[in-house]
Design a protein around this nucleic acid. Structure first.
Length: 265
DNA sequence: TTCATTTGACCAGC
DNA sequence: GCTGGTCAAATGAA
């Protein structure tokens, strides 16, 4: 079915682009004389992450573009406070593979000047009575090998986020079933894992850091359990590149979901 | 009704 | 002329 043609502007009126342009911005330093010009001297940096949409800031999507020779479209975001606080921060999100979960390359442009409070990841907010502000997400890679182990690894970006944040109080491990071709991860017919299911981070060596009884969300899609870190020196034990495997003796469902670990404050 | 997202048009760098 | 980045009208969701 062909959708009706959409009326688009043909000619920009006398007001030129730039000089504040459509957003009424007064130019910041260095003054972008024309926001549509591709500047070579932009301050940009690149991160690779599994969670490109939850990096502690609020973003508004303003465009999407199919890039030549790229298998996935590029998404364009700018800071939600662009108008309110004259924040020029923006980012480009480009999916680089189709793993489960997929890896994204995120190109950030300009530092945030909005000084907005960190935005927690949704699964930190939902159903969690701990203070959400200041929370962050540690995202762990997921192996696709079937069997009793579920590999996790501390990723570089999240490690940087962790070290830029206050000391965490809890380590919350979510095991999420994200493969759409399967039924829910934790159907009611499957009993939840026991607390013997634990990552092999040295955290489990601490007697005070025993996990809570795991629980599932409303849709039985995500299994969650906590470790209390109040008497645990996470800095001393958790290292960049740490590798973990869930050590349950049997995995009652396929292990091709994703694993996330949240650090709540 | 308001606000965010979608998507074709527009524009400039290369 | 091609390509990528941004704009802004149309559209959808809340």
């Amino acid at each position: 079915m062909a959708s009706p043609p959409r009326l688009k502007r043909k000619q920009q009126p006398s007001q030129p682009y730039g000089q504040g342009g459509a957003f009424g911005l007064s130019p910041l330093e260095p003054a972008p004389r024309d926001s549509r010009k591709r500047r070579k001297d932009k301050h940009t940096w690149i991160k690779h992450t599994l969670t490109p949409y939850f990096d502690g800031h609020l973003w508004r999507k303003y465009g999407q573009k199919v890039i030549k020779d790229a298998p996935y479209p590029r998404l364009y975001f700018r800071c939600s406070y662009r108008e309110d606080r004259r924040c020029l921060a923006s980012k480009l999100v480009q999916q680089v593979n189709h793993d489960d979960p997929p890896l994204y390359e995120v190109t950030y442009t300009y530092e945030h000047t909005c000084n907005a409070a960190p935005v927690p990841a949704p699964d930190v907010e939902a159903g969690d009575d701990r203070p959400a502000s200041g929370g962050l997400v540690l995202s762990f890679g997921s192996s696709s090998d079937a069997g009793s182990h579920h590999d996790t690894r501390v990723q570089k970006q999240e490690w940087q986020q962790y070290h830029q944040s206050p000391s965490p109080r809890f380590l919350t491990m979510n095991l999420e079933y994200s493969n759409s071709s399967h039924q829910h991860a934790f159907p009611s017919s499957v009993p939840p894992p026991t607390t013997s299911w634990s990552p092999s981070f040295p955290i489990v060596e601490s007697p005070s850091a025993s996990p809570t009884t795991p629980w599932t969300d409303d849709d039985d899609d995500i299994l969650t359990w906590d470790w209390d870190l109040s008497a645990y020196d996470l800095d001393e034990h958790l290292q960049l590149g740490d590798h973990s495997q869930f050590s349950g003796s049997s995995f009652p469902w396929k292990s091709d979901g994703s694993a996330l670990a949240n650090l709540g404050i």
